[in-house]
């Protein structure tokens, strides 16, 4: 049995589900009691729960889709765990990719991880890379809410822009690699080439088109699905091109 999908890994995933559910229920119960003390009606509180569940279904399915797309490299359970706790697809993939590179695996998550040590290292890097908020919250949240929040609200545009710029910088590195990066000379399909550029362009075009479609009245529900759908459709394009193109073109990697 694949060690990435063993019963033990599923047990860990199950524990994460129990942990998050218990913690969320605790906060919900405390907030509910205080809401009643404040005079908020049960009907309003129940409506809040129901509408939040409905609001969440589509984005949660979108997160599930991203778990499945990176499962080819890391199995289903580790991405499931990581995207359930402080998860963010861009960060998790970058952290795993960075770990694989530190082992000299240039193809990164385009290839299945078969080495247990590499897999365990990826789990550590993904975890340590994302724990900063849990260190900051107990120390600073109370102060932030009392003071800094007011200042940031005044500079909200600059703060938004810098957060977006940091993330764009991260994305840019991977886009550039798909256009002009070299892979492992012994492995076919891991470096920049015809297929990687076609996949990149398809993903961008699908995303722009789906985002535009989701602005049309009555199909706004499409919006949270635009990202994972674009990913899956672009991966479909890669699959199709690999089937119909001549072998030498489909496997062409211009930087090796």
């Amino acid at each position: 049995m694949d060690f990435k999908e063993s019963g033990f890994m599923y047990l860990l995933g199950g524990l994460v589900v129990v942990f998050i559910t218990a913690q969320s229920l605790f906060f919900m119960r405390k907030a509910w009691s205080h809401g009643k003390e404040l005079g908020l009606s049960s009907a309003m509180l129940k409506k809040t729960v129901a509408s939040s569940i409905l609001f969440t279904v589509a984005p949660a399915l979108a997160i599930l889709a991203t778990v499945i797309t990176i499962a080819g490299a890391l199995g289903l359970v580790l991405p499931w765990i990581r995207l359930s706790m402080i998860g963010n697809i861009g960060y998790e993939v970058t952290a795993a990719h960075s770990t694989l590179e530190s082992f000299g695996i240039l193809g990164g998550l385009n290839l299945e991880v078969k080495d247990k040590t590499v897999f365990a290292a990826a789990a550590w890097v993904m975890t340590i890379g994302s724990v900063m908020p849990l260190l900051l919250l107990p120390l600073f949240l109370k102060k932030i809410q009392n003071k800094i929040g007011k200042t940031v609200t005044a500079n909200a545009k600059w703060a938004d822009l810098m957060a977006a710029a940091a993330f764009i910088g991260l994305i840019a590195a991977f886009i550039a690699r798909a256009i002009a990066g070299a892979g492992d000379k012994n492995i076919v399909g891991d470096g920049a080439g015809f297929l990687s550029v076609c996949t990149l362009i398809s993903a961008m075009l699908f995303m722009l088109a789906l985002q535009r479609l989701s602005k049309i009245p009555h199909i706004e529900w499409l919006e949270p699905f635009a990202m994972p759908l674009s990913m899956l459709l672009a991966m479909g394009v890669a699959m199709l091109l690999a089937q119909i193109l001549p072998q030498n073109l489909a496997t062409l990697e211009w930087r090796g």
Binding site: A73, R177, T199, S230, A234, A238, A242
Partner: peptide
């Protein structure tokens, strides 16, 4: 081939 192109698909 689809799983080999996860990174360009995701970041695209």
């Amino acid at each position: 081939p689809a799983f080999q192109q996860v990174i360009p698909a995701l970041f695209g």
